[in-house]
Design a protein around this nucleic acid. Structure first.
Lengths: 247, 247
DNA sequence: CGTCAGATTGACAGTGCTCAAGTCCAGTGG
DNA sequence: CCACTGGACTTGAGCACTGTCAATCTGACG
């Protein structure tokens, strides 16, 4: 694939410049000035889209880059010792994947595309040096990591104090919110993950997920058909998620 | 408390300089050269020791600093909505407290001393600027946050896939390891937290904690007397923690 | 020595897991 | 176009783990 590609490559690059990216207000360069954004843009490597089921990187492979999701979605799965897999995160557009690999210089989980997915690869060493001269970028990086820490704490609370009903209600309310922030409908979306994925993530058996979804449906909270979801009563759902008298 | 204090203050400062701190090889400035460490040292604010039960900062108060634990231990507790409190972390010497407050510019939980505890206060804005000129410091900060992310993921796995026995075994094995890394005996230590704290942290009822500790004791894994812990068979304990066939 | 929080122990019940069928759906090949 | 097939999903029945409630015990401290 020689030079002929360069032209196409460039136009692809153009299409995917941060400045023209619809996610720029949510993504890492969010606070950068135009000229700084160009610098940032320059270190990014575009990638061919991942197809459903393809892996972005594998657990324990050397950490080189973080990735920003442009479109689609991914899951992170960690296999530890003899135990079962644990699905530790779903990633949606504008979110940063791989930050937990910095410390040990290897990725602590395998990340797999749940649907056709495009990502921007950001080599970490270059991001780090660039963050030296661009304080806003550095701040944003600290903030991204800090936010992930906060989200993790919320997840721990969910896993240790919430009933199955509350977990699922939280999950759907959370998804709804994440879609809304990205400009999609908060009431109507398609799940890219299977029931098994949801169960694994929330610490529930698949059967429990299925049953409770059925109950939510009969209670008029949501309408679910396969992976198509319509949230009918977001307020009630949020209320279930935060209900007093857990467990 | 006028000038007479200055002398004492200075000597206190001297005692607590990073260069003479026994934790320097575990703490934030771990990778710094001597002269850089002085710079780092200069931004640190020493604090009067916290007594047991005193709070370092409260949930939702403005984020200004991160704190490095010098001695003692703390717990972080998050109260959310109508729900019960969730204990999200225990902090031991050399660990960094408050990193999850960067993003929203307020602390997401209240941090309370479990015993007499001394901390180094590191104003974040100054840490951030210093991290511009000291790449090693920046790297270490990224790494600290990344490590916390990894630990959180491990915690999620614990909460969603492990039985009560496995949780407690993991908890004790983890504590043992953290003590060992800090140069204390991995086999013999004193818990600074109550059973209720442990239960809250692990997502278990106090009664369950108590029962399982009793069982571990009769199985010869540990000897527990109040908060005094002796680990008798660390290998077996680790094995319980990672047992196949969860739940 | 009394007090009170923290810890232990016991009885019981509920949530959610396991095991087991059965149904639905998308993709495949005739 | 349609039957086929395998995976994903749903539904049902039983039971185990662990939470709840309640009573008792222990130990630190005044």
């Amino acid at each position: 694939m020689p030079d002929t590609l360069t032209g196409r490559r460039r136009s692809l690059l153009h299409e995917t410049r941060c400045q023209t990216c619809s996610l720029s207000s949510l993504c890492l360069p969010l606070a950068l000035e135009v000229q700084d954004m160009d610098q940032f843009d320059a270190i990014i490597r575009r990638r061919a889209p991942l197809k459903k089921g393809e892996t972005l990187f594998r657990q324990d492979s050397p950490f080189t880059s973080v990735f920003a999701v442009r479109s689609g979605s991914l899951k992170q799965v960690t296999t530890e010792g003899s135990g079962e897999d644990q699905l530790t995160n779903f990633y949606l557009p504008s979110e940063l994947v791989g930050l937990d690999g910095i410390d040990e210089a290897r990725y602590p989980g395998t990340v797999v595309a749940l649907e056709t997915t495009t990502v921007c690869e950001i080599p970490f060493d270059r991001l780090d040096s660039l963050s030296e001269s661009l304080p806003e970028l550095r701040t944003q990086l600290y903030r991204s990591m800090s936010k992930e820490l906060r989200d993790d704490r919320r997840m721990m609370r969910l896993l240790s104090r919430k009933t199955a009903d509350q977990r699922l209600a939280s999950f759907f309310a959370g998804l709804s919110d994440r879609f809304r922030r990205r400009g999609y409908s908060p009431y109507s979306f398609r799940l890219s993950m299977s029931r098994a994925d949801i169960g694994n993530y929330l610490g529930l058996a698949v059967e429990t997920v299925s049953r409770i979804l059925g109950r939510f449906q009969s209670q008029g909270l949501v309408a679910v058909s396969g992976r198509e979801v319509h949230i009918l009563d977001l307020e009630a759902l949020t209320q279930v998620a935060e209900e007093e008298g857990a467990k």
